[in-house]
Amino acid sequence: MNDHVSRLLAALAYPLTSGRRTLAAGLVAVATYCLLILSTFPTYSMQLLGADMGYLDEAVVALTANIYQTTGALGLSLVVAYAVTTGVALTAAVGRARVADRTGVRGLSSVVPGLLASGCASCGAGILGLLGFAGALATLPFQGNLLRLAGLCLLLGYLSRLGDPRQCAVTPAE
């Protein structure tokens, strides 16, 4: 248990180990946040951005207000936490892939499954809306907060296995 916690903390701290990593994690987090927010009302987002990408800020602000009103501070906090964790996870995954390239260990194949498993658990409600389930987010238990929490737990679980991507854990021989 302590190993998992220490690996999780190491993974969370990894983007802070250089300016480039911090910037990369921040950009991914912002992009993920926009994607998650826009996916809460996909037909609206697609129509508005299809007309003019200049509406991106307006759409993000409007849907942020909407998600706050429908799911409360908890729902919005979960989206922010999911976006930040995704930024950390992707940065760490790239770091692990680079180390793997140098060491000859399996590369992306060792990190992609974890990210895919986390995948789009949080924006799943948006995809439901895209498929035609009207008000999918509002009809889900706790307005989709449970789905967001599940996605966040998967990401944190992935990070707790990954740890600091620059270090490889070696299991001692018995």
Binding site: F41, T43, Y44, Q47, L48, A51, Y55, E58, A62
Partner: peptide, 10 residues
């Protein structure tokens, strides 16, 4: 057709 509360200009 317009979906959602889009800006007046739209």
């Amino acid at each position: 057709r317009l979906v959602g509360a889009q800006p007046y200009a739209r």
